[in-house]
């Protein structure tokens, strides 16, 4: 086992216990069979999952602390006494003013993000084949869908902040329209706070992702990855992008459906 003759065990010590170990976790190899960069991206995403997990856990706790509207959905009314039913809050659609289209716009946003995930994974696949033109094409599509999602969220926010024409009659006789961090017409103040923090944090992640993708597109066009011999950077940014999509899947369920 030993390579050097000076370290050769003597004939008397037949049970030589200090031989170099060659197991999976004994060093000198890659137990995860993943590169440093990809591994660090996974660990970052794990920590990010805890951040969003904390947000959604806080949402669950605060929602269960508040009262539940016990009647049927068609008799629902906005009040600070109970948590709002999401489909009564998010029922607008750009260009279709005054119509009740529950969750239609958020369905569109979900589809945009799923599409962006598909184009991202297509870019990664093109990178594996060293197909520069295809990587460029799919990165551009992903940037486009990302920008579309961000614009949709901007509309969603302005609609939420602007509120309905009817508004909510306050105890002092005034009428409250829309939402801010202190009060909102939809329900308990914390409902709007959680909406701003959770979707805002997710939107910031999408924005960072779009910035990374734009940079990645420029580097691809300049031939940086082609010279490097691999498109692993596309893969790492892809991991981040899919994670952002994953977070939306959970936000969608717990904020809009449940």
């Amino acid at each position: 086992m030993a390579h050097s003759t000076t370290l050769e065990p003597t004939a008397a010590t037949t049970t030589y216990t200090d031989a170099p170990r060659t197991g999976t976790w004994d060093g000198g190899n890659e137990p995860f069979k993943a590169s440093y960069g990809k591994l660090m991206m996974w660990f970052f995403l794990l920590s990010d999952a805890f951040t969003f997990g904390a947000f959604l856990t806080a949402y669950g706790m605060i929602r269960h602390k508040h009262g539940v509207f016990t009647g049927t959905a068609d008799k629902f009314f906005f009040s600070t006494a109970h948590w709002p039913i999401p489909e009564k809050v998010f029922n607008g659609f750009p260009g279709l003013h005054g119509m009740d289209l529950p969750l239609a716009f958020v369905a569109l946003m979900t589809m945009i993000l799923i599409f962006s995930s598909v184009t991202m994974v297509l870019a990664v696949e093109a990178g594996h084949r060293m197909d520069k033109a295809d990587v460029q094409k799919w990165l551009l599509w992903t940037i486009l869908f990302g920008a579309m999602f961000l614009s949709s969220q901007a509309w969603e926010w302005s609609h939420f902040i602007g509120g309905s024409e009817k508004g909510l009659l306050m105890a002092d006789g005034s009428v409250m329209h829309g939402a801010n961090l202190a009060t909102n017409e939809y329900g308990p103040p914390l409902f709007a706070d959680l909406f701003f923090f959770i979707t805002g944090f997710h939107g910031t992640h999408v924005f960072s992702g779009v910035c990374l993708l734009v940079w990645c597109f420029i580097a691809t066009t300049n031939g940086t990855f082609e010279k490097r011999g691999h498109y692993e950077m596309v893969e790492k940014i892809g991991l981040y992008w899919h994670f952002v999509d994953l977070v939306w899947v959970f936000v969608f369920t717990f904020f809009y459906l449940v």
Partner: peptide, 15 residues
């Protein structure tokens, strides 16, 4: 999403 798009299904068991 995690298994296919993020490729985790095809990584090593330890990861």
């Amino acid at each position: 999403i995690v298994g296919e798009f993020m490729h985790l299904k095809h990584e090593t068991k330890s990861l």
